[in-house]
């Protein structure tokens, strides 16, 4: 019993909990897809840059 408690305490000390488990916000990934926040923004930027628009439709589940 004592051995288990000591082992758990040691593990908790050695292995830090992930941010969400500590109640802290996670850190943003360094790279990610930059999604346009509206269709208007997408059109405006696509015209200015002269690039295609990639639209992806999804549903949960």
């Amino acid at each position: 019993m004592l051995r288990t408690i000591l082992a758990s305490a040691l593990l908790a000390w050695i292995v830090p909990l992930p941010a969400f488990a500590q109640g802290k916000p996670a850190t943003a990934p360094q790279e990610y897809v930059h999604w346009a926040s509206s269709w208007k923004e997408a059109l405006s930027q696509a015209r200015e840059r002269n690039v295609p628009i990639l639209v992806t439709f999804h549903e949960d589940g």
Partner: peptide, 23 residues
């Protein structure tokens, strides 16, 4: 995706949102 403008459309929000630290 840097060569395009990317648009994500989804009417569902069941997946939820979270707070993250950016800079």
């Amino acid at each position: 995706t840097h060569a395009v403008v990317a648009v994500y459309a989804n009417k569902n929000t069941d997946h939820g949102s979270s707070e993250v630290v950016r800079g």
